[in-house]
Simulated scan of single mutants.
Amino acid sequence: MEKKRVLLIASHHVSLIRFRGDFIKSLIDNGFDVFAAAPDYSEEIKQKIKALGATPVEFKLQRTGLNPMKDYKSIQELKSIIKSNKIDLVFPYTVKPVIYGSIAANSCKIPVVSLITGLGYTFTGASSKAKLLQRFNETLYKLSIRKNKCIVFQNKDDYQLLLDRKVIPKDQKVDFVSGSGVNLKQFTFKEKNPTDKVSFLFIARLIKEKGVALYLEASKILKEKYPNAEFHLIGAPETSPTAISEDELRELHDKGIIIFHGKQKDVEKHLHNTDIFVLPSYYREGLPRTTLEACACGNPIITTDSVGCRESVKEGENGFLIEPQNLEALAKPMEYFITHPEKIKEMGINSRKYAEERFDVDIINNDLVNIIKQELNLN
């Protein structure tokens, strides 16, 4: 029997390796031909995609903002890719690929299994611009995903929101997975043995919605009270309107309040070398990959009791959930770990157990492959 052809559509080529590399391998191991579409491919990522056994395909996409002419061209280009490569099923993820990939595939009468990895800024922001974008995106989602064979969500809050807003009908076929999963062989467990130098780590985009400003304020307060504590921060400076400036980060680093590492590739090493992972995000997450990696490495988690984030914590067992945008609520559990370092080892062990139970990439990819097989009548 001829192999079925699956087209993955991403908004960023790096994510195909970092977040979907194991998934691509799972599809190939299950007898699929895989095509991986993304804009602005680097030669390095192209070669990595080919090494996995997949075919990289490039298309043009304006990742942020709205430009009807460019967006229309993206849809037409995706339609051409689907037809010329005789694609049997399209699997888009993240906002624009889901919307434009779904429109393109449905117009070609090709089945779509779309993955909602979070609803992001437009469903989080309270500004007039965010609300305008929200209404516009709701309309685009209605136009694009209602004909999809299955919509996969990473949390039930996003599903409920789209249901409540009548973006999708009640009879829409949906499924759920626990994020993109984490490779437990790559992100290995290391038992924590903390001293009086308890260390915290924040990894995310350096925008206020991700909670970085709150983390910096908590670091200032706690560093003054507990000089031995360490507050690490990983992330690349951004030009977003809500970004924290690199000058501010460098100043705090030079004063010894934080340890700013900038952008880093070897995340596992930094998770192993620090005690507690902190993500006080109020961005509308799917299920943050960094918290899953922290769980796998054996770090207790402090994150917000909000969409997506809450999925990674069993309250009081492997960490704490806090109220979003509340400095006191963040500083309290951070101080708890400083004054009760013996709890770090125990909660870290529980984090790893939770990762093995729920976030193992093999389990999640197996679920996704089965959904695709079902829609192609291969089960």
Rank of each mutant, 00 (worst) to 15 (best):
V6I: 15
I9K: 00
H12R: 01
H13C: 07
V14T: 15
L16G: 09
G21I: 04
I24T: 12
N30W: 08
N30M: 12
F32H: 11
D33A: 12
A38N: 04
K46D: 15
I49S: 01
A54Q: 07
T55Q: 14
V57N: 09
F59N: 02
T64Q: 15
P68R: 05
P68Q: 01
M69A: 03
M69Q: 04
E77I: 03
L78V: 00
S80N: 13
I81H: 03
I82L: 13
K83V: 15
S84G: 05
K86A: 14
K86E: 15
I87Y: 04
F91S: 14
Y100H: 05
S102W: 01
N106W: 06
K109W: 03
V113Y: 01
V113M: 08
T117M: 15
S127Y: 07
T139I: 15
L143V: 13
R146F: 05
K149V: 06
D164V: 11
K166A: 06
Q172P: 06
D175K: 09
G179P: 05
V182D: 01
N183F: 03
Q186I: 13
K192Q: 13
F200Y: 10
L206W: 07
L206Y: 06
I207C: 07
Y215E: 07
A218W: 08
S219M: 09
L222A: 11
P227C: 00
E246T: 10
H253V: 06
D254P: 01
K255Y: 07
I258H: 06
F260L: 12
K263S: 11
K265Y: 10
V267A: 06
V267K: 01
H270K: 10
I276T: 10
I276N: 02
F277M: 14
F277K: 02
Y283V: 15
E285F: 02
G286A: 11
G286S: 09
R289F: 06
T291S: 09
C295F: 01
A296G: 02
A296K: 03
D305L: 03
V307Y: 04
C309V: 00
E311W: 03
S312W: 05
E317L: 12
Q325R: 14
Q325T: 07
K332D: 14
F337R: 10
K345N: 08
K345S: 14
M347C: 05
N350Q: 14
R352A: 01
K353C: 12
Y354F: 11
F359T: 00
F359P: 04
D367I: 12
L368D: 03
K373I: 09
K373T: 10
K373Q: 10
L376D: 06
